[in-house]
Design a protein around this nucleic acid. Sequence first.
DNA 1: ATCTTTGTTAACCAAATGGTTAAACCATAG
DNA 2: CTATGGTTTAACCATTTGGTTAACAAAGAT
Lengths: 204, 204
Amino acid sequence: MAKTNKNQDTEGQILEAAKEVFQKKGMEGARMQQIADEAGINKAMLHYYYRSKQLLFEAVFRNAFALLAPQLNKILNDDSSIEEKVRNFTNNYITFISKHPYLPNFIIQELNRNPNFFEKIKQNAAFPSLDKFKGQVSAEVEAGILKPTDGEQLFINILSLNIFPFLATPLIKGFTNLDDMGFKQLMERRKTAVSDFIINSIKK
Amino acid sequence: MAKTNKNQDTEGQILEAAKEVFQKKGMEGARMQQIADEAGINKAMLHYYYRSKQLLFEAVFRNAFALLAPQLNKILNDDSSIEEKVRNFTNNYITFISKHPYLPNFIIQELNRNPNFFEKIKQNAAFPSLDKFKGQVSAEVEAGILKPTDGEQLFINILSLNIFPFLATPLIKGFTNLDDMGFKQLMERRKTAVSDFIINSIKK
DNA sequence: ATCTTTGTTAACCAAATGGTTAAACCATAG
DNA sequence: CTATGGTTTAACCATTTGGTTAACAAAGAT
């Protein structure tokens, strides 16, 4: 029997509402009732479609991670030079995250809460690997394009500089006395500030 | 009647146990019963000394923040040169956090959960200000010691590079395939790697 | 038309959880 | 020695929460 498109609708609505609530409140803080309310449906439907809070949560998490992974692959498995990668990634990532501000915190938070959750993801999806990136850094160091640089540390630095401000947004707003608009502009300026900062440091 | 020192003991034990549990599980995930168990006392004592979960949590949070603030003040209100500050802070902070691995995540997490929580802290404690640091960066740029550099962005970069790896530990372990020991060594190497990275970028 | 499958709801349930209470405990001031 | 007041405990309570159920609606399939 052909699936009616009614379910498609509600199943999607549930996922959307669950995303909102889980990302704002986390697994423990989220309430099934609130998800149902936000989706405009009966609470029993959540269980009808996703069996349990845990499974609904995992669906949301997989979705979120799937959104982020391609961003990382861009810097890891792309063929452009390190400098291009840094500039592209920084630019793209900040644009991307500005559209999904809760994403990084959500992922970090739940990864910390349940580290073995990570193993599941790692096997399942096409999980990014550092190998190519490290090789490329070595090659560019060899070729005299970059100063001696550890690829692993460089990768961590790139992630740190790009992701941290979005994890620590309230902290940074506090230090800088910026409101939402001011913060947004600060992040906009970081698109070039961060890539310049990195390139300055590693380029010969 | 003079306070016996019995209460000092249990009050401290409660705070210690609460710290453990809250830092690992967060406000929502923590259970009063577990805190009582971990402190080896009756659950009613938690309320006797701290009235409610919320107040106990705030006590733990204030404690945690008070531990972190001096670390920041070191880089903000100290009189050494920017280069010295960067090297000192990076070195000290990584050492410090290795001893309190749950701290950064705890603070970030709860700051995100309840941003107006931050306001309380901000008024109360001697809250770090960026002004001196920014002035100092300008002065060193003027004096030709540093390349043109935005103090605000530099500050964010320093925090990012130092704090992020401890927030995203599971993620980084995943990418690098390191176990606890390997991660610890990686962070040890970062003490110089990060300061070199920063100095390389900004020093003329 | 009616039977069957899928989708939806209101009412319900058991377990967990933060919090309370009343009585016991115990050190010590008088 | 005993009255007092802070400390501690076991039992209890109200509410919240994830999850279930049974009845009902809708829409093909026969």
